[in-house]
Design a protein around this nucleic acid. Structure first.
Lengths: 220, 220
DNA sequence: TGTGTCTAGTTGTCAGACAATGTAGGGTCA
DNA sequence: TGACCCTACATTGTCTGACAACTAGACACA
């Protein structure tokens, strides 16, 4: 294994920082992000800001209309459903492929165990990280760069969705159990069973999240 | 229906022009695109060029490593397979959804008819346009913005793939017939049948294209 | 009430510059 | 001759500063 230095460009560093702030809720849904404000607060040049914004727009974490400031999207119940509608085929295709192989997936196994070790008192952002780490481990195990790219293009929105609606979030232990079920299904080498478990896992998540989104809409 | 003016920004116009030139084969696979050269040839500023390049990279039409010029990727047989591996779940999910509804899809119908009217003498790029128009019409008919976004993120590469390997391309009439079969399957309201036809359509395409890619690899 | 005008704020685009990095050619040494 | 190093060039990454174009909101007016 070669050691890899990963020099991070200013653009990328800025994009990551904004991403973190958006996902942590520090930058609230609906708030605007004028370019000059970012220039001032980060001390970088405007082209750098613009590139970083373009990156985040691609990831679905920001919206931009011509001649308007970028802003953080507010997820409606319909948007939540749509995110999971588009996500489902990717996750199911992944699980099916892996179950056909029936091989151990060390990264996914590790993710499940980390999740289980977390306990119900953990901070919600840790739980989200552990949750998505499992799904990403599955996708990566398939070995399809393009499938991974498609998933990455949705991952930001999935996180955003959870970040904005986190009161609906399960307790970590329940989720970890669901993950273990999926992984066991894969290793059992039965595509239909594994697929069914993943489908259930996703359905449950989307039910909870849309429910919470509807509540929030009523309150507002 | 509101009438929409679509003023095109310089960035977008540049991205489109480059996209067309890449897909037409005018800019060959493997060739480099230094930023300053684009600045000179198009008479735009460098930030504009960089934004356009970033767009195309996101669409898979260009590759960029840090401190290197962007270049057009050369598609290996493995890459072709991977494109279709990632594409399949999107297309099949789409077809399944539409077949469950069983409703007429005017845009897709129109695309099939345009394809059939094309005749076998048409230029290959017209055939590609007609082909993708059908698939895009199906995806759009679903009404999921995110599914459409995922498909769009792959569409560039699908086109690139066909553009680079076009000698493997079927005669338009055969493809149009396959499309009609898929559409009929959807309108018959039978998800499994519709899905099977789409799967066959995709399998056939990937067989032809990887075959051609392997040939080319041998020649080189 | 509805229309037109003005202004401030913001984005879209341009020009020019410099440092850091990657590449290729030539020269040195074994 | 072949391997290695080193310098010059090409290119990207980033910055500064600038101006035009556009949007939205406030205001005056019919």
């Amino acid at each position: 294994m070669t050691l890899q230095l990963q020099p991070v460009s200013a653009t990328e560093a800025l994009a990551r920082s904004l991403r973190d702030r958006i996902l942590s809720g520090e930058i609230e849904p609906g708030s605007r992000l004028p370019e000059l404000e970012l220039v001032r607060s980060y001390g970088v040049a405007r082209p750098t800001v613009r590139e970083a914004l373009q990156l985040l727009v691609h990831q679905g974490l920001l919206q931009r209309r011509p001649n308007h400031s970028a802003c953080v999207p507010e997820l409606t119940p319909a948007a939540v459903e749509d995110i999971f509608y588009a996500r489902a085929p990717l996750e199911l295709h992944t699980v099916r492929t892996l179950a056909e192989r029936g091989e151990e997936i060390p990264a996914a196994r590790a993710a499940v165990e980390r999740f289980e070790a977390l306990g119900d008192k953990a901070h919600w952002s840790e739980a989200v990280d552990a949750d998505l780490a499992f799904h990403v481990a599955l996708i990566d195990a398939v070995g399809s760069p393009r499938l991974a790219r498609l998933h990455a293009a949705l991952e930001g929105e999935i996180r955003l969705c959870i970040a904005q609606l986190r009161p609906a979030w399960h307790t970590p232990s329940a989720l970890a159990e669901e993950h273990r079920q999926v992984l066991d299904g894969i290793l059992a080498g039965s595509p239909p069973a594994a697929e069914a478990r993943m489908r259930e896992h996703l359905d449950k998540a989307v039910r909870d999240l849309t429910g919470r989104a509807r509540e929030r809409e009523r309150d507002a």
